[in-house]
């Protein structure tokens, strides 16, 4: 019963938006080449689904996002943990991180093209850039933020430096690292539009850009909503993983 109530509550704002949207478009206040009405969006969705194009675009996008994201994870977590743990590494890497971090992934597009050519490598690279810094910085902060007293307790129980790292610092930073993964994935996913500008032939970002050029606003909306829904679904999954494996997160020691 409570679940139903929460579910209905969650629907209120979308329903309000849907109503406003319908009124604006069905009455012609906003022409369809600027914003399609909900019916057009449904038709566009149906067509994209039936022809299989939506499925191809979605899997195409997911492939490059997951590839870029996994590579970013594999590099950013160890690097972030290392920098958080070792002052030497921090001094070494900090300047270049601070310089590269503010550069938006879109700005890397010409480089991706030149270094990797066209295809999955270049696209995954853009996603990689998007995911990398949130994962790196969250891991770094998580390691630095481990309470000193936990490390001291481990030392008085006989832990060596490497044991402290593996048995205390890593588990203690896992909530922060997981948060970095969630944020990193989200941002990497958003970069798919930029990534697919490099001569992609399919993908949700590509779908949106193509349809925008052809003023197929129905397809644009379907593309946007699909990106939103997939992003939401994956973040939800990651949140559930966190709940299961880190039940103690956020609760005081």
């Amino acid at each position: 019963m409570k679940f139903l109530k929460n579910f209905l509550e969650a629907l209120t704002i979308p329903v309000i938006l849907l109503t406003i949207w319908s009124i604006l478009t069905f009455t012609g206040l906003i022409p369809s080449y600027i914003l399609p009405n909900p019916y057009e969006v449904l038709i566009a969705f149906y067509n994209l689904l039936i022809t299989g194009k939506l499925f191809i675009d979605a899997t195409s996008t997911l492939l490059r996002v997951v590839t870029g994201f996994l590579i970013a994870t594999a590099i950013a977590i160890p690097l972030g943990v290392g920098i958080g743990w070792s002052k030497t590494l921090e001094t070494l890497f900090n300047p270049i991180i601070q310089i590269l971090r503010p550069i938006p992934p879109l700005a890397w597009v010409p480089f991706a093209l030149l270094w990797f050519g066209i295809g999955l490598k270049a696209e995954a690279f853009i996603i990689f850039i998007g995911s990398f810094f949130p994962i790196l910085l969250n891991s770094l902060d998580a390691v630095k933020g481990v309470e000193k007293v936990l490390i001291e307790a481990a030392c008085t129980l006989g832990a060596t430096e490497s044991q402290v790292l593996t048995k205390v610092v890593l588990p203690a930073s896992s909530p922060g690292i997981l948060l970095g993964l969630r944020v990193g994935f989200g941002i990497g996913f958003m970069c798919t539009v930029a990534a697919e500008m490099i001569a992609a032939k399919s993908g949700l970002g590509y779908l949106i850009m193509e349809s925008m050029r052809l003023l197929d606003t129905g397809d644009v909306v379907v593309g946007m909503l699909t990106i939103g829904l997939i992003g939401f679904a994956i973040d939800y999954l990651l949140a559930k993983v966190e709940e299961k494996y880190i039940p103690w997160r956020g609760k005081t020691i």
């Binding site: 010409p110 093209l113 030149l114 050519g117 066209i118 500008m197 490099i198 001569a199 032939k201």
Partner: peptide
Amino acid sequence: EMQVPLMPKALEAGR
């Protein structure tokens, strides 16, 4: 498809 300003560089680099 490619953005036209990127084409010369891409051609030069053999992409």
